[in-house]
């Protein structure tokens, strides 16, 4: 349990909240609008936050509910995508690792909302299947199924079932992930 004042703790989760917003919306302007709404809502409803529970999960839930609610209001099935996700690379691909990472981002952007969200929550943010399911308002089995389907789709898009591709990506992944200059 954090000893921080909940409002101070909220600030520590903002980088992760923004990463979640960008990966969910794939649009920088929409992500920033969602962030502002979520921060405002969380701040003014801080009395509803239960100390000792997972604040990051609470914040992510507020943001995703805002996002889907505004999508429904606008009656939009397809989001406006401005490549905010794949544009986060500041340099042009200059070796295999960079190229593979770009491929990965482009493939990830093509996943359905619920699959992208499931992978980000479970695969990247480290939430348990139970927590991720609760955040998305679905059963744990549904969340597991979404993660599996998302992985299967990425496997197909990146042709990871091809042994040669996997050998190449293993080497490329090590080149990127194993770099001492990058966070693990």
């Amino acid at each position: 349990m954090s000893d921080l004042d909940p409002k101070d703790e909220l600030v520590t989760h903002l980088p992760a909240l923004r990463a979640f917003a960008l990966s969910l919306t794939r649009n920088r302007a929409t992500a920033d609008d969602m962030m502002q709404d979520a921060v405002l809502k969380a701040w003014s409803n801080m009395d509803k936050y239960k100390p000792g529970t997972n604040m990051r999960a609470w914040l992510f839930t507020i943001l995703r509910n805002n996002y889907y609610s505004s999508r429904r209001k606008l009656n939009r099935e397809v989001a406006d995508i401005d490549n905010a996700f794949s544009d986060t690379l500041s340099v042009k691909p200059d070796h295999d690792g960079r190229l593979q990472m770009m491929d990965f981002k482009v493939a990830f952007q093509q996943l359905a909302d619920e699959h992208r969200e499931a992978l980000i929550l479970v695969g990247a943010s480290g939430f348990s299947y139970d927590d991720a399911a609760e955040m998305c308002g679905v059963a744990t089995g549904t969340m597991k199924s979404r993660v599996n389907r998302a992985r299967a789709k990425l496997t197909e898009l990146l042709q990871l079932n091809d042994d040669d591709v996997l050998e190449l990506t293993d080497a490329a992944t090590m080149a990127v992930v194993g770099s001492p200059n990058l966070p693990s």
Binding site: P15, A16, R18, A19, I120, A124, L166, L182
Partner: peptide, 19 residues
């Protein structure tokens, strides 16, 4: 394959956190 996907996801998410 799952390991490759998860490692890349973490890397991408980490980059976005630093935006």
């Amino acid at each position: 394959i799952d390991h490759f996907i998860d490692q890349n996801l973490k890397k991408v998410f980490s980059e976005l956190e630093q935006d």
